[in-house]
Design a binder for these strands. Sequence first.
DNA 1: TTACATAGTGTTATATTATAACATTTAAAT
DNA 2: ATTTAAATGTTATAATATAACACTATGTAA
Lengths: 129, 129
Amino acid sequence: MHTLSKNQQIIFDIIDKSREPMKAYSILFNVQKKGIKAPLQVYRALDKLVEIGKIHKIESRNAFIACQNSSCQVSKATAFSICESCEKVTEINNSSLSKYLSNFKDKAGMKYSKYNLEFFGLCKKCITK
Amino acid sequence: MHTLSKNQQIIFDIIDKSREPMKAYSILFNVQKKGIKAPLQVYRALDKLVEIGKIHKIESRNAFIACQNSSCQVSKATAFSICESCEKVTEINNSSLSKYLSNFKDKAGMKYSKYNLEFFGLCKKCITK
DNA sequence: TTACATAGTGTTATATTATAACATTTAAAT
DNA sequence: ATTTAAATGTTATAATATAACACTATGTAA
């Protein structure tokens, strides 16, 4: 296990507590009272947290969420569902899906070490609206 | 079929000719001689081209490539391989993969209308380096 | 425990990516 | 011909992200 540094811990905590993906400058705003004043301090912590799998970046939204899977192994194999109405994002934890994708090989003979999948649609709540 | 407007055609052409994904401001630089002067003119064309499936955005790279599939149907089901060394990006056209993902349903009962998948690794050339 | 290397911090400045707002023009549909 | 929708041109600005440099803390190994 990895021990987080001071800034990493502060920033992880705020993302982990959030019920929705957080953007970098929103994080910055929220941690200024804790002494983190500059964007770079946030981005450096984010980079590290992504690297060790504690958080994931939702690429289509430029936002970050805490990993919902117990383990960090899966930081190289991420899948999310995104509601295009309410913007709720959920990490998908489905072994069939991860097996299928981890074993996927394309014609070009490229061997993949990582993937990121984002599904878009409407969540249950938003469908009925 | 859709007829492209003047700006849309100019911007599609330059992306289509490019052998690598193009970034918005690189596109802007390259079309200034054609009278397109402002970022917004580029972004508006990009938005439309993405909407109609002529190009795709590589989210992890903030860059755009022309659709490599003959049809525009697939604009809602995109998959790419990205070499992390040379940054070569290739659109994956694999019916097993697209069937699997199009039929995928998660526990939450959310029905997906769209997905985007990005694989990362090393291409053949870069493996042997 | 000192020295060395590695990782993390603080700070200022700046680069890159993207949109708001508004006036005008062109194309398409009735 | 008139109306409507789509596209354009323009200026300004918002939002996202990194470069560069000086300094500090932490872990490792002699």
